[in-house]
């Protein structure tokens, strides 16, 4: 009886897993098929003769630019976010001043607000500053809108740093900058790597800001770029599949290598709220 119960539970869990994973497998399979094979054939079948040329077609179509833009914007925004957030978190948690709580509260305002409420004024500001269709607008927006979550994740660690470490450094005659860059930043490496991962995923997947602020193809990132591609390939399912696979593959590969860190980051970004 107990055994049957366990088997039933496993069946439930496996069905959920199948539901979660099958659409992605189906995507991989149809990215390697011809339209004929997709439309007439069995959706569960493996491609009889994998059409890698679907991928070549997409690369020839210029997805490389979008890919490169996604990479550099993600990396630059992530590095800046973590530097700015670490500095602010250090001053808020480790330094002594009256307004630290207020400043923290102000930063946390960004956690719950709908970005759409700020979108028109942001667009107008960038228009007046000549930053529309300039990747700088994307980078600074990413940095700003990821600051609250990054500070929130860093906060827990920073409050647990023992005072003695700071005292020892200051008594040894080290400056605050030296203390921050040479001691605090290195010991916060594990929590920083969690924030790196969260920031990378957010930036890689971001859509609204790029869609609103960028109009030239040469600055678009993958999320917006694949929209163009798919419009272009309207009826060519293989090419659409290949486009989608190329856009999700980096994240899936990262997950294979860093799954524990990614799960830790996602949990931290939610529960501490």
């Amino acid at each position: 009886m107990r055994r049957i119960g366990y088997i039933l539970l496993y069946v439930c869990l496996s069905l959920v897993a199948l539901f979660q994973i099958f659409p992605i497998l189906w995507l991989f399979m149809f990215s390697l098929k011809t339209n004929q094979e997709i439309f007439a054939g069995n959706p569960f079948a493996f491609p009889t003769d994998p059409k890698w040329e679907n991928y070549l077609k997409v690369f020839d179509g210029g997805i490389g630019t979008y890919f490169w833009n996604s990479i550099w914007i993600t990396v630059v925004a992530t590095v800046l976010t973590i530097l700015v957030a670490s500095m602010a978190t250090f001053a808020i948690t480790r330094m002594k001043w009256k307004l630290s709580g207020l400043v923290l509260g102000l930063i946390m305002v960004g956690l719950m607000i709908p970005i759409h409420s700020a979108l028109i004024p942001l667009y107008n500001m960038f228009l007046n500053a000549n930053l529309i269709d300039n990747p700088l607008s994307i980078v600074i927006t990413y940095v700003t809108y990821n600051l609250p979550i990054t500070v929130m994740i860093l906060l827990g660690f920073y409050t647990t740093i023992p005072r003695e470490i700071e005292e020892a450094a200051i008594i040894d005659g080290s400056s605050i900058h030296r203390l921050f860059f040479r001691i605090i930043l290195p010991i916060s490496a594990p929590i920083m790597s969690t924030t790196v991962i969260i920031n990378m995923i957010y930036n890689w997947n971001e859509f609204v800001f790029v869609n609103t602020f960028i109009s030239s193809d040469k600055y678009k990132t993958l999320t917006v770029g694949i929209q163009n591609f798919i419009g272009q390939y309207m009826t060519d399912w293989g090419a659409i599949g290949a486009t989608l696979v190329i856009s999700v593959l980096p994240i899936i590969i990262a997950f294979l290598f860093f799954s524990d860190k990614i799960m830790e980051g996602i949990t931290a970004s939610a529960v501490k709220g």
């Binding site: 602010a88 305002v109 960004g110 942001l122 500001m125 700003t144």
Partner: peptide, 24 residues
Amino acid sequence: IIFLYTFPALLLIVVLIVIPLILS
């Protein structure tokens, strides 16, 4: 030092989040 370390974050948050919300 406190000003130097919090200024970048505060500037970004105020200019790109708080002010746009009010402007909206």
